[in-house]
Simulated assay, not measured.
Amino acid sequence: MATVEDVRRLAVALPRTEEHLIRDRVKFRVGRIVYLALSRDETTLGFAFPKEERAALVASEPEKFSLPRTSDLRYNWAQAALAALSLPELTELVTDAWRMCVPAKVARAHLGPDPAPPPPPAPTLAELRLSAQVFAAYPGVDRSWLELRGPAAPALDLGDPAGRTALHRWLNTWGCRLPYPREGEPYPLGEGLAAWTESHPLPDTPLPDLTDPEIDTVATAYGELARLPVRCGPRPRSLGPTAAAKALYALRPHTVMPWDAAIATELYGARDGAAFARHLRTGRAWARAALAESGLSADALVADLGRPAVTLAKVLDEHLYVTITRRAAG
């Protein structure tokens, strides 16, 4: 059971909070904005709460939560019976009410960054099968991949100039439009790839078996790779997030689930290294779910889905391409 002292202790610990006694009611505010208010008998706690979510809150536990008085319905405000709240509930309620009144940077400085949301729900085998059928129907969908990493293709070694050139050409077949150097011009991408591959040894662990430290290693390598210059001079350009993700897939096809701008933006709202780490964790969870549902090995599963030329990581990427990228393109 929560008490008035619990409310006071939690509120005054939050930055910029001031306690005031206004018309015989204890209120807590940030500047001129009140975010907590006790009733005169101190049995009811009013608190800042999104008004569009208020009806659902009250309906969920009407013995605990209630609407404010009629004159306050226009505000982001709700009420709770203080004695009915547990201490964890009160803590969450007070903190969320305070967050509505302070700048986001103040909340982050005090509480830390928002926790990452859970990964999107894993697609079912039926959904993967449908996406695989759609993707496989695109003309020449596997031609450039088989030329780069097929059974008859040479090993992709970025320490070798031929390997760097092969990767460059493959990325351009997927629309990355990376400039080729003219004769006698410097080749910043080639030089950057050579240095990058020396500095960033990548794990070769299959996607469903990746550990968190391995994911962090790949995400760090991704961030550095995305920043590699591909053109210098008055109009400089870097490799960028999409090409970096595709390059990592080319190097570690069983390990890395690539992405493009539409996928990254819709699922994570960002394309930096932290977002790519979340993407790999999503891929890991999805791969495990697909293997568990099918009861097959990864190679047997992709063959069963009609995509034997690619890996499970790529099948998952193709599902995202069909369901997000193509939809975004109209």
Rank of each mutant, 00 (worst) to 15 (best):
M1P: 06
M1A: 10
M1V: 09
T3G: 05
D6N: 14
D6S: 12
R9D: 13
A13K: 07
L14T: 13
R16L: 15
I22G: 01
R23E: 11
D24N: 14
R29Q: 05
G31E: 02
L36Q: 12
L36P: 06
A37M: 12
A37T: 08
A37Y: 02
D41G: 02
D41S: 13
A48G: 10
F49Y: 15
P50R: 08
K51A: 14
K51W: 05
K51G: 09
E52D: 15
R54F: 02
L57I: 09
L57P: 02
A59M: 08
A59G: 07
P62F: 09
K64E: 04
F65N: 07
L67S: 12
T70D: 15
T70C: 04
S71C: 07
D72V: 11
D72G: 11
Y75G: 01
A81F: 12
A81V: 15
A83Y: 07
S86A: 14
L87T: 14
E89D: 12
T91G: 10
E92F: 07
V94G: 02
R99L: 07
C101P: 00
V102K: 03
A104H: 13
R108Y: 04
L111M: 08
G112W: 06
P113N: 09
D114Y: 07
D114F: 09
P117L: 09
P118W: 09
P119A: 08
P119D: 08
T124M: 09
E127P: 03
L128S: 05
L128C: 08
L128Y: 01
R129E: 13
S131I: 02
S131H: 07
A132Q: 13
Q133M: 10
V141L: 03
L146C: 10
R149S: 15
A155V: 14
G159K: 07
D160H: 13
P161K: 08
G163D: 03
L167H: 05
H168A: 09
W170K: 03
L171C: 01
G175C: 03
C176F: 02
C176L: 07
L178Q: 02
P181Q: 04
Y187C: 06
Y187P: 00
A194V: 09
A194C: 11
A195K: 14
A195Q: 15
E198D: 14
S199L: 15
D204K: 07
T205R: 06
D209Q: 15
D209N: 12
L210E: 03
I215G: 01
V218D: 04
A219V: 06
G223W: 00
L225M: 07
V230R: 04
P234L: 02
P236Q: 01
A243V: 02
A244K: 00
A244M: 01
K246F: 06
A247T: 08
L248M: 00
A250I: 08
P253C: 03
H254C: 10
V256D: 00
V256Q: 00
P258C: 06
W259H: 15
D260W: 04
A262Q: 15
I263M: 04
Y268N: 08
A277G: 14
H279T: 09
H279Q: 14
H279W: 12
L280V: 12
T282W: 08
R284V: 10
A289R: 13
A292G: 05
S297E: 15
D299H: 11
A300T: 11
A300S: 14
P308T: 09
A309T: 06
V310F: 00
T311E: 07
T311Y: 06
H319E: 00
H319F: 00
I324C: 00
T325N: 06
A328T: 05
